[in-house]
Each structure stands twice: as C-alpha cells, then as structure tokens.
C-alpha cells in the first residue's frame, strides 16, 4: 500500500501519479494578512501556485474570493485542499476545475498582449487576433495591444502564435472561476 512513497524518510512525493491542474476557489474573511496566510502556506509546504486572483466578493459579509490555480498529483491536491481549509480565516474551499465534479465549472482569464512590428507581421497579428476574437485596445504605427478573454488554454495558444508576429509583453489577470448552474460555491 505504500508503493507510492519512494525510499526516503522525508521525500514523500507520489512518483506514480501524474500532475493535474486544479482551480481552487477559496472563500476567506476579508481581513488584513489573509492572503499572506494562504500563500504562506503554499510556500511553506512546497505547493505550486500557477496563478492567483483575489478580490472582495460579498462585501456585506466581508468575504473575499481567492481563485488559485495549482498543480500536483491527486494526493497533493487533496493535501492542499485540507491544509487550506484548516486555516482559521478560510470559510470554504471549492474545486472549480472546469472538468471536475458533477457539472464542472467556468474558468475565464483576461490577457493584454502587446505586439510590435510592421508590414506583413502586423497584418498577420491583426488577422490572428480576429480569429481568436481578441479586441484591439490600443494601436500605434508599429504596435498593437490586444485584449483576449477565455480559458487559460486558449490564451496560451494565442500568445504562442503571437510570439512569431512580434510579441513583446503580456499581462494576465489569472483565472476567475464560478460553478455552473444555480448553486453557489
């Protein structure tokens, strides 16, 4: 039964499991230092943070929602959830990974992407932006800034393509996620 654990007293990463990406929605008390508690836990226990967004959600109840994308083996993901849930300021943790659970969840992200170039490259950049439904939010004679919203995967694809047509800078919001249907997290 301990096959998953390699031969070391301390190093107990489960080697047979593949890493998965999970989007966690963490509802916390909106109080000073609460973000430091959550990310401090990730740092102290060696968990990954792939992306992070925080904002007040239900201001009446003074709650904030931290949406955090992490990766790890299924057992590590389980550990992350119980560890985060144990924090005193945390109300609840929900797994809002798009293809997790009964109904799945909605995950969206926004990115601003700057490309520089003239001539054909510039035209190609515009054509690609159109194909991806990205908006042009800024333009100069030799640059564009596009805005794209969508799932992380799509944005990754768009950015990869932009690399060959003069990509210079990217700024992403990180993932926002909500449960589908009438129920709330």
């Amino acid at each position: 039964m301990n096959k998953k654990n390699p031969a070391s007293t301390y190093d107990i990463i489960s080697i047979n499991e593949d890493d998965e990406r999970h989007t966690l929605s963490i509802i916390v008390d909106d109080e000073p230092g609460v973000l430091a508690r959550v990310i401090g836990l990730f740092a102290a226990r060696g968990f990954n943070i792939d992306s992070l967004t925080v904002s007040e959600t239900e201001s009446k109840q003074q709650l904030s929602r931290i949406t955090l994308v992490t990766s790890g083996s299924p057992s590590v993901i389980e550990k992350i959830k119980v560890q985060v849930d144990r924090l005193v300021s945390v109300h609840r943790v929900a797994d809002l990974t798009a293809d997790y659970g009964q109904y799945g969840a909605l995950e969206r992200e926004l990115a601003l992407i700057k490309v520089k170039g003239t001539g054909n490259k510039r035209l190609e950049a515009l054509r690609l932006a159109e194909a991806f439904d990205a908006q042009t939010v800024d333009a100069s004679l030799d640059s564009f800034v596009f805005q794209i919203t969508g799932r992380t995967r799509e944005i990754d694809r768009f950015i990869n393509l932009m690399a060959s047509v003069g990509l210079t800078e990217v700024s992403r919001t990180g993932v926002a996620a909500l449960k589908r249907g009438a129920g709330s997290t």
């Binding site: 039964m1 301990n2 998953k4 654990n5 107990i12 057992s75 389980e78 550990k79 119980v82 560890q83 849930d85 144990r86």
Partner: peptide, 9 residues
Amino acid sequence: ATSINKNVE
C-alpha cells in the same frame, strides 16, 4: 484532517 494520508496512506 491534514494529518490523514499526509505521510502514510
């Protein structure tokens, strides 16, 4: 709950 399956399954 964090002690469960932490070191040993």
